[in-house]
Design a protein around this nucleic acid. Structure first.
Lengths: 339, 339
DNA sequence: CTGAAAGCGCTTACAG
DNA sequence: CTGAAAGCGCTTACAG
């Protein structure tokens, strides 16, 4: 734009370069078709005028909004991964020349109306879904309408396959690896600390399943406790019941970082040393993980890889597929694992 | 859209209603101009076809993108307020019929190029700025180009006024109120715990200023300590130096919730009881505040009010103005204040 | 290789 | 109150 706020248009570039408007359009969209000499001439004009095509005009002509829709979760702060995920997603989408439109919507089937509006207004070309829940209605709804989307997270369908394409982190695998690592380090009472089911959160169950299966495989006891809320306090109470047992665990695998920090506080209150007397692990590698003394051993979700995959799936066309990515265990002093 | 993915257009609505296209446009944009009878007829057609105007076509005609740009902070997770803020902002903007486009940009003056692109492409009508830093270059740059924007946060200009319109939370006022409340409750050694300056963060200094001024006014000593990092561990170490003093404080005002939680952990480690032996306060009312046992007394930033103001300022036209909003003290057991 | 034509789906004055 | 006209700023076949 010029300093007076007037936007530069194709027409002005064409005039300055002494060519027609579609020649300018061609150097932008199909440069190989235009003579190198005029190409240079046009590029010079574009440069000198600081021209950039209008997104709206281009969108109208191409019938592509150039925008991907992403619904912000209803409970901000529910997951500490939300923020890094959104950041990585924005960058991944920008890398393909599109941009991210965020919106809010009611939970459940009611929220579908917002998706419908966005589609009807042709405000977005596709959606990225996250914060998926068991039996999430969005996937089937979008798929049946032929709207492109990619999902971070599974819908854990009771039966049949999940509609559309998804990518997720293998929580079960990561927790199993944690158990193996703890066992190799000499632990044989490895407890799990999760959330008490308010809502069915598939990821939480998945993590627990990984822990449980590996304990069974190794012939270890299955001690578990559940926090009443997603809080340090809830986790501390749950950890207390574990530690008060006749045969208390020597390691606790928590389903999330916040829970793990709560466990650590309870461990410390008992004058026990995390990473020595009791080993503690979390999940997410959130800002809390580097916040506790010595750091928290946790599972990092590969944000860049997740979002790059998501963007790739967006353009994969209709169909069903799933990608399971490995979480990476980050060892810190709360559970000094040898990796 | 119809089930086959074909979008409904104005033309189809006009045909079905038996009127011209601009009559349809009129019932949408200037209903008072059209006869009630035909208005009904058109509305019925719109309803039955599930018509919604194309955002792009409308944008091209009105020269309004209908989109507001918002740059995601470079360091996700830096502030626990990011997530609630973004959520509230999205809702506030949607309430005015527009939507939010999020983007990423390099820090500092280099990031201006991204803003310039968005403007040149006419991808957004205006910007919301947050995560402002001392001497933030964006405000002056946008103002000088006549690009509408509103800022959450001040740029703390050394001299002169801040360009454009801003809203901020009165951190100094909230901390002064905290000091008054603690003093009324009988405390006369009220320490401050902040961050050791890595980058100049105006808000942090503002909070400290409020604490300091009020301590002076009340004739209280000014004890302060600083965490080396924004972590519980850093805060715990800083708190230790405070508590090891010959005249240790009986209350600690921390500049953020994460710091406060670190203070609490240090307090507990010393077998002291938060809210009894030592009172502790935080700032942000983040998810951590309800996460520690008994809860953390903290200052809530009024997200809905902030974002509603931001949206209002966006449409206030060029000029300079500032709105300072009060933070609300939320009293919990870490510092059971009488409010 | 280049340009005249048509069109994307709306809105905005402006006649009737 | 209603409709014919022009235009928003691009792109996409399609002649030349």
């Amino acid at each position: 734009m010029t300093t007076d706020g007037q936007a530069v248009t194709l027409r002005q570039v064409a005039a300055q370069a002494g060519v027609s408007r579609q020649t300018v359009s061609n150097v932008l969209n199909a440069p190989e078709r235009v003579d190198p000499a005029t190409r240079l001439k046009v590029r010079a004009a574009i440069e000198s005028l600081g021209y950039q095509p209008s997104r709206t005009a281009r969108s109208l002509a191409t019938r592509q909004a150039g925008l991907i829709g992403y619904c912000l979760a209803r409970h901000p702060g529910r997951s500490l991964f939300t923020d890094p995920f959104l950041h990585a997603l924005t960058e991944a989408i920008e890398a393909t020349g599109r941009r991210l439109l965020v919106f809010t919507a009611p939970e459940g089937a009611e929220g579908l109306a917002t998706y419908a509006d966005l589609i009807a207004q042709r405000a977005v070309d596709a959606f990225i879904l996250s914060d998926t829940v068991d039996g999430d209605p969005r996937h089937g709804w979008l798929a049946s309408r032929g709207v492109p989307f990619a999902s971070f997270g599974r819908t854990w369908p009771e039966q049949g396959e999940q509609p559309g394409r998804w990518v997720d982190v293998d929580g079960a695998g990561a927790c199993a690896e944690l158990v193996r690592g703890l066992h190799s380090a000499g632990h044989d009472r490895i407890a799990f600390l999760g959330w008490r089911d308010p809502v069915p959160v598939g990821a939480a169950k998945d993590r627990q399943r990984g822990w449980r299966d590996e304990c069974r495989r190794l012939g270890l006891p299955e001690q578990a406790a559940y926090a009443d809320s997603d809080s340090m306090e809830g986790a501390a109470h749950a950890a207390a019941t574990l530690l008060d047992a006749a045969q208390p665990p020597t390691a606790i695998v928590a389903a999330g970082d916040l829970l793990a920090v709560g466990v650590i506080s309870e461990v410390r209150r008992r004058e026990l040393r995390p990473g020595h007397d009791i080993w503690v692990t979390g999940f997410d590698d959130s800002l809390l993980a580097t916040s506790v003394e010595g750091g928290l051993t946790t599972v990092r979700q590969p944000a860049a890889e997740i979002t790059a995959t998501l963007v790739r799936l967006l353009d994969a066309g209709p169909g069903r597929s799933g990608v399971l990515l490995d979480g990476r265990i980050v060892s810190r002093s709360s559970a000094p694992l040898d990796l």
